[in-house]
Design a binder for these strands. Structure first.
Lengths: 249, 249
DNA sequence: CGGCGCGTTGACGCTGATCAAGTTATGTGG
DNA sequence: CCACATAACTTGATCAGCGTCAACGCGCCG
């Protein structure tokens, strides 16, 4: 396991005036996105946020680290990773601009969080989060609901991993990424996939080869097309939605 | 999907006298258990709790129901179930005496909860939970941590489903059940398995046959022995812990 | 140029699903 | 209490989805 602790020196107070964290760097292919309404209203926290940049491949925290900070992604992409002693890896989620992470750990992180691309985050001290939540029932409620939503997504992923075929998993993943980057998009949607095939495989409980083959199949079927530099285009959403359902009969 | 709503008539205030619910039927092998320390201290809630009995095979709530109540199990055993349109099923967790459930749903339950055996619960109105949490930061914090623990367990299960062999899944499940019913137990431990093979299969992402075969193998290896009426005995914990690790090399 | 990371494609085999009996529990009505 | 029906479990034979191993192409960078 890599244990590169990125320098803390680039953390700067956000204190006063205009939010300076509005995506100055354009490193990531993933465009900055407004936080969705249900997660956006943790405004009370903003005054405690500090900006931080983590370079591609580096960790925000490792499994086992004390949970001292929570994060909101401004730009870039992050994965949360579980590793076991044999080197087997499970990626719990990919996080995109607007997403929050680190809020659902107990005192100690049980997964590590790693930057897939150069990533800009706002970073909230855990003690500030807890203190604010102690005083403001509304914030506590929103935090609770945030973790609840994560739990619901985890349950959906358990279903995916336990009960769906390789084709269904890949198709569902692509649709999920599409929905997250362009909510409600209907026609041909361009989806950025900033992660490697290995990342997708470790997220979907498959191997690199199976992911690759499945996507090739989807291309042949005309459901998707491969765009430039880690993007795909969804051409036929319905084909994607029903893909692999026939595999398990 | 079965939509039997058990009668609400058998709900009675908890205040009263001797618990007449001490397992009249011998279906439930799971003995009552004290709530573990970290979950037990939701004491503020107790005054709002009402007792309720749900018979084996009946639902506490269905997926899609508004989340009006949360529950603590007094005796019995519960499963939380996700179902899809094809009839594929995923059991997120099995819940034992002392366990809490229903706390991690948003406004609407996304899984259904069904009694595996005749089950006695204490039932807390969601509005009371929320109102109390609004006023008592400490309670809110404990609720948050409760949901966080559930999320961590969900992540561990994602790892199990995505990355472990059939043997490892079954072995891990038996060890988990052992740990939950007899924490820290060292020697030969007797473990109640109040669920069917189909339940185990739908929890572990396997088929009935594979579960059955794997347990037969474990018996042959002397790691476990089958006891009476849905119980097994763990004879060799280390053999169990390393079982199936060789299968995937 | 050559090494390296990443992705693709093919051949083959194994784990676990599927199909099919058959046996043992569980429950029900006589 | 037994007879019967049904659910739950076990075991075997066969199959296929996906993993494994291997080779190769491509873009990037020193």
């Amino acid at each position: 396991m890599q244990v590169q602790q990125p320098s803390m020196a680039d953390r700067t107070p956000i204190g006063g005036a205009a939010p300076g964290w509005r995506a100055p760097t354009a490193t990531a292919q993933v465009p900055p996105r407004r936080a969705p309404a249900q997660e956006g209203s943790l405004d009370l926290l903003e005054q405690f946020g500090t900006r931080k940049v983590v370079r591609r491949g580096h960790e925000f925290y490792a499994a086992g680290d004390p949970a001292r900070f929570c994060y909101r992604i401004v730009s870039g992409c992050v994965r949360t990773v579980g590793l076991d002693e044999d080197g087997r890896r499970q990626i719990a989620e990919f996080l995109l601009p607007g997403d929050l992470f680190g809020f659902d750990s107990l005192d100690v992180h049980h997964l590590s969080a790693e930057a897939l691309t150069d990533t800009v985050v706002v970073c909230y001290p855990r003690c500030a989060v807890d203190a604010l939540a102690e005083q403001h029932g509304g914030l506590a409620r929103r935090l609770r609901d945030l973790i609840r939503r994560n739990l619901r997504r985890a349950h959906e992923k358990m279903f995916l991993l336990g009960r769906k075929s390789a084709g269904e998993r890949v198709a569902a993943f692509l649709l999920e990424m599409a929905e997250r980057t362009a909510p409600g998009g209907a026609g041909a949607t361009c989806v950025a996939l900033p992660m490697t095939r290995a990342d997708m495989a470790d997220h979907l409980g498959l191997t690199i080869e199976t992911v690759s083959r499945t996507m090739a199949q989807l291309c042949r079927d005309g459901a998707i097309a491969s765009g430039k530099a880690g993007t795909i285009v969804i051409r036929d959403r319905e084909a994607l939605e029903s893909f692999g359902a026939n595999t398990r009969h």
